[in-house]
Amino acid sequence: MALKKSKTVRLFGAGGHSQIIKLVLQENNHKVSDVFDDKPENCHSFFKSITVGNRSNYDALSAEGDPFIIGIGDNFQRAEVARFLKSDFETAIHKSAIIGNKVIIGKGTVIYAGAVIGLNSIIGKHVIINTSANVGIDNKLEDFVHISPMAALCESVEIGEGSHIGAGAIVMPKIKIGKWCTIGAGTVVTKDVKDHCVVVGNPERTIRSNKFNFPNKKLTN
């Protein structure tokens, strides 16, 4: 599945996650017009030309022009940028990804090589479906979720806003994971998880809460 709305995209963030997005775009014959980052001196060597984007002054980033993709892997930071950046957003979907029928994919979402999304699933805005992740049928992923490489979500799973499913984790059918949770790598989730929980192990166990203050300005794009 290729991009449909634009042949050029702006990136916010120039780390490792952003370079993979750029490769996905290039494979779909799309171009990156500009790359913005708060600290360009710390950026990945893949990027040769970077514009300083001050996260404390989003008004300086024009809403006019190409849509953005936020190339930040950290869910909290990606959400922070998305909630205040005045722009339209685009998706990036690798050509090798398998997308089932009647799947809804929100703006700003990126889907990496080898990922599978089952039919009737709903994927929110600014979600990351990482390399070879498997999202089963009838899943619902809210905004800013990150499904790490090789993670598997079985049938009818719900993942709350901002939650991170670690590499190789398995979420059993009809499980609901709350908002802003962290599911550790290799964890097997067999029961519902409340908001803000950090869960690890097989079988799973909750080890702590990761509550934090979060900007409450609504995402409008």
Rank of each mutant, 00 (worst) to 15 (best):
V200S: 03
S45R: 10
V171F: 00
E41L: 11
S56N: 15
I129A: 05
K107L: 12
A113Q: 14
G166P: 10
G13Q: 06
T187A: 15
H30V: 10
G114K: 00
F214Q: 09
I147Q: 06
Q77N: 09
L23M: 11
Y112E: 12
G168S: 12
G73S: 07
F212S: 15
K176F: 09
G166W: 06
K95L: 11
G186Y: 01
D138M: 09
G16E: 13
K39I: 12
K31P: 01
S45Q: 11
I69R: 06
I183K: 01
S148G: 03
E204G: 05
G166H: 11
N54D: 15
V110K: 03
S49K: 10
K194R: 10
V200E: 05
I207F: 06
L61P: 05
G118I: 02
K4E: 11
N28V: 01
V135C: 03
N120K: 14
D74I: 10
N54Q: 12
I170L: 15
N134E: 10
I105E: 06
I122Y: 11
I72F: 02
S209M: 06
M1P: 07
K95E: 12
V110S: 14
T190A: 13
Q19M: 14
D192S: 07
S87M: 04
R55E: 14
K176R: 15
I104N: 14
I175D: 00
S45M: 03
N54V: 07
Q26R: 12
H196K: 09
V189G: 00
F89A: 04
I159G: 07
A60H: 10
R10Q: 05
I177T: 08
G160M: 09
A60I: 05
V52C: 13
N221Q: 11
I123T: 02
E155G: 15
G168N: 10
V199I: 15
G15E: 09
V188A: 13
I147E: 07
T109S: 13
F76H: 12
K102C: 03
I21C: 01
V116Y: 15
D192P: 04
C181I: 00
K140C: 12
F76K: 14
V199E: 02
H126W: 08
F12D: 06
E204T: 01
I129L: 14
A113D: 10
M172Y: 00
I111C: 06
K217S: 12
T206A: 10
T8S: 14
T109D: 03
V193A: 04
L153V: 05
V103F: 09
P215E: 06
N29D: 14
T109C: 04
S209V: 02
I123S: 03
R205T: 07
F144D: 04
K4D: 07
R83V: 06
P173F: 07
A97Q: 04
T51P: 00
I99P: 10
V110H: 01
V116W: 13
K218P: 13
A2G: 14
I117E: 07
S33M: 05
N29V: 01
L11W: 02
